[in-house]
Design a protein around this nucleic acid. Structure first.
Lengths: 341, 341
DNA sequence: TTGAAAGCGCTAACAA
DNA sequence: TTGTTAGCGCTTTCAA
């Protein structure tokens, strides 16, 4: 597979430049206290030998791997795509590399990934945990002893948090739907042990209360963020004797399931049923009719998360845990109309 | 950020177990020539101290990082999602970790990522390069001197390749469209310097030739795999005095652009124009009408790629470069109909 | 089968 | 400002 001589080491560079190991290291690490003459000699040697530092050896000594672990639910959501793209680009620019992993809705895999991260000595962690309330996961994160950003999860008082205000998001949606005249709105979202689901559920209940409406518990469907769950629950909802007049897909992967179920039921949007979806720009704009969307700017969250993380690992940001909140925007499209009675 | 005592090392384990460093290492690495009594003592010590090996130190000595670099175009295509999900899960199972990076259509970033990989001493590389013909990239890959799998790119005689047969794919599509009566079919795909584009272009031309048709060069639009490119070219195609009666989205990200352009032109599918798309299960099934799809099983490719890679890095697969080919399946849906004259 | 010791490539502490 | 040296945590000789 290979060809020829071994990779040059810093020793070779020092030898070639006729300086000591230490001086070579100082040049490589851009320390200021190096004579110009020496610096040039070392740089020439580096170029001549085609030397690149060995990151493993650097990490061995310096304790830093310049690696940021990023632990998400899965790779399939458009939200992840915007986030990951931005984060990767900003981290690389500073010489850091993201270690990306998804647990694909299997909490056990989350633990495995965390320990793989630990063994590799990541410098920082951005994590969307599968459960806010799992003490074992929290404990494992703590043991990593690196700057951590909880992504759209509950602040724990110890780590930085960057989260969406889903509560006001659902409030916006409900205000909109109620104004259109809807009284039977269904909410599909994940299980209560993650913050986005919990916030949506609470806001959903509160909106009913504030409007003086009695919430039919059949209309609240929680348990998973997957499209499969959304489809199966939608099928069930649409078969109800008094089916909802609007459905909220409360999760970035859920819209496809909802749309499939509605089509299978032979219903038309928005005539028979109104639909609002969480962030999914492509599908929402492309589907006909276009779908009203509760949009979150995950790219912007990626920028903030990267900057905060870089600040923490580089020591330029200090002090107590920060909590960054992001608002949602309701983008009204064609999928909502007054219900007909 | 931290709390308490430093992580236990193998030295602590050896001390606790009352054995030598070497013995502790042998137990950890599951060597057979260790006395049962010793093994138990070491294992107990490991459990007691909560020891986990330090992957950086292991790599330092062993030369293996158990890390596989995966370099793709970007994170946004559903094809990537299926592939990455499978690969991650199979690699983790064997104690390997994927290092995922996308160059987002900027060839310069590809080089940066490759050198980041090199510095980190990856054990293997799976790469969808931005250009089959860029000698600098090929050279950089070669210098990595690790098992490499070219993903849907031209075999270079040195590395393993796992590729889709786009040629027969386009042939299937053309046969289908010609049989429906289409004579003006447009193909949208990437630039000729990557294999999937090149194969599609060649097969597209050959299909015309074989059918005794003269290909209007205006109908062949190559240059980029992005949705933006697809949209802009589609807009242009649809404004032609004699516009095509069918469009092929020859790239996994391109369908959205095509659909947007068709909608903007006020045309209806398949009455005014037929559409065939490369792999994009969700959108193809969800859009109305459903879209005829030239499907590739990227999950299956992920399985094969992982197994081949693991075989190479673990030394269980030896010998000359392998070339694995995957076929496409044409899934006929509602987006194609005979053209009306 | 086990222990002792060298050393992977580098950074950092110390001395000059 | 530069050189020398110890040692990061581990695997892997080499001897015993």
């Amino acid at each position: 597979m290979n060809g020829g001589m071994p990779k040059p080491t810093i020793k070779d560079v020092a030898l070639e430049a006729g300086v000591s190991l230490g001086t070579a290291s100082r040049v490589i690490n851009r320390f200021s206290d190096v004579n110009v003459e020496m610096r040039l000699r070392v740089e020439r040697a580096i170029r001549k030998l085609g030397y690149t530092p060995d990151a493993v050896a650097q990490s061995m000594r310096s304790r830093s791997t310049r690696t940021i672990g990023i632990l998400i639910r899965d790779f399939s959501s458009p939200a992840f795509v915007s986030f990951a793209t931005v984060v990767q680009s900003l981290l690389y620019r500073e010489g850091y590399v993201p270690l990306l992993a998804g647990y694909a809705d299997e909490p056990r895999r989350e633990l495995e990934i965390l320990s793989a991260f630990a063994q590799r000595r990541i410098d920082g962690l951005i994590v969307t945990t599968s459960s806010d309330s799992d003490a074992r996961l929290a404990d494992t994160r703590r043991k990593l002893a690196v700057p951590t950003i909880l992504f759209d999860r509950d602040p724990d008082g110890e780590q930085d948090t960057i989260a969406v205000d889903h509560r006001s998001g659902i409030q916006q949606v409900m205000t909109y739907l109620l104004k259109l005249g809807h009284r039977r709105v269904a909410l599909l979202t994940g299980a209560h042990h993650v913050r986005p689901a919990r916030e949506r559920i609470e806001a959903f209940i509160k909106a009913h209360h504030d409007a003086g409406l009695v919430l039919d518990p059949m209309l609240l469907r929680t348990g998973s963020f997957t499209a499969e769950f959304a489809e199966q629950q939608s099928v069930d909802l649409l078969a109800l004797p008094n089916r909802p007049t609007a459905i909220i897909a409360g999760g970035v992967n859920m819209l496809p399931g909802v749309l499939l179920a509605i089509r299978a039921a032979g219903l038309s949007i928005p005539k028979d049923i109104s639909v609002v979806s969480s962030t999914n720009p492509e599908l929402c704009e492309l589907f006909m009719p276009t779908v009203t969307e509760l949009r979150v700017d995950y790219g912007a969250m990626g920028v903030e998360a990267s900057q905060l993380m870089l600040g923490r690992v580089q020591g330029t940001i200090k002090g107590p845990p920060r909590i960054l909140r992001f608002d949602t925007t309701l983008i009204e499209r064609e999928s909502c109309a007054p219900p007909h009675v």
